[in-house]
Nucleic acid binder design. Structure first.
Lengths: 180, 180
DNA sequence: ATGGTATGTTGTCATCGACAACATAACGGC
DNA sequence: GCCGTTATGTTGTCGATGACAACATACCAT
């Protein structure tokens, strides 16, 4: 028994879980499987996550940080396209973040990460007459677009990224005369 | 025993499952629980649904029909508001339909029901220059709005229905061509 | 009535989340 | 150095679940 203690089990669990998540989807993600991948007993993860939901919440929070990084530096239309690109690149992570599997209300860290991302988005619309409303509309648009693309509801459209850009470009916000 | 056969087990299972769905959420929905509610053995449902996913698919397809009925008769903004109202009224059903739990690709009946609803929506935009694109943008908007409202990302907004109407009203559809 | 088919039942297995009891490592005061 | 406290992993177990096999009963056409 060279190392009875793992050293950094929490990080190892998150790494393994992220891999399971993207390759086999949310329902296949079990604490026991994550433990196996870390070469550790089936019950060890409970020292780091009180229950399965806590692990999912940590993965989701990590996802919001990644999304925030993907959006940072862009503004307006480009930010929207970055949003959709992120969703298409990490479909399962995106579903975990927004699929309702993890109740936001119960996980403060997750709420915080989501709120930070929200602020980044609202900030990009600060030059419009009603930033909150415009940001809400823009977010709704790219968020719904991402979901519908992931679900395959727009299969008739050819190139996905190009289609997304067209949809985003087809929308104007009424309270001001300027397009994004 | 009076009735060895149930008579209409499939319908009874769907009814019970729908109740479990809205009261306890998707993960709590088990074939065994549905069987219990129908007063039938734990294995009987397999005669009607090859596996758990098939039951979920049937519930989702039913959901698309309900959504189609809710949208029918309206057009434009009103249809969008009806969409959001449906999502808020049946949150778990909505998540089941769009949460990615059920892979559309594997269930033809589900695909058909979704496509029918899609047609209803596109039809409402036939008077605009580019109906397909406008419909896609409109659908994305109300779909994303529904999801974000359900996830509690717009808690700062007061009255929910009024907020939804404002967001929908803040958007215009342009026919401008777009190149990346 | 008779035989085939559709429908339910009983029994069983592997996996999972969760918990309790126990074992070992790491750290700090002395 | 020594020892006790705390953090971290392990073993063992329970109830619930999805899935399947083997069996039993009702229904229907001939």
């Amino acid at each position: 028994m060279s190392t009875y203690h793992h050293g950094d089990l929490r990080a190892a669990l998150l790494r393994g879980a992220a891999k399971i998540l993207e390759t086999q989807g949310i329902p296949a993600l079990s604490l026991r499987d994550a433990a196996r991948r870390a070469g550790v007993s089936h019950s060890a993860p409970y020292r780091h996550f009180p229950d399965r939901e806590a692990l999912l919440a940590a993965l989701a929070a990590e996802g919001f940080e990644l999304l925030g990084e993907a959006m940072r530096g862009h503004s307006g239309r480009e930010m929207g396209e970055a949003y959709v690109r992120f969703a298409l690149a990490h479909p399962q992570r995106f579903r975990l973040m927004f699929g309702g599997t993890v109740p936001m209300a119960k996980h403060a860290a997750l709420r915080g990460a989501a709120a930070a991302t929200h602020r980044t988005l609202v900030g990009a619309f600060s030059d419009l007459p009603r930033p909150q409303l415009a940001a809400a509309a823009a977010w709704s648009l790219v968020h719904g677009l991402s979901h519908l693309l992931l679900d395959g509801h727009f299969e008739s459209a050819g190139n996905v990224e190009q289609f997304a850009a067209q949809v985003i470009g087809a929308v104007r916000f009424a309270s001001g005369q300027r397009a994004t």
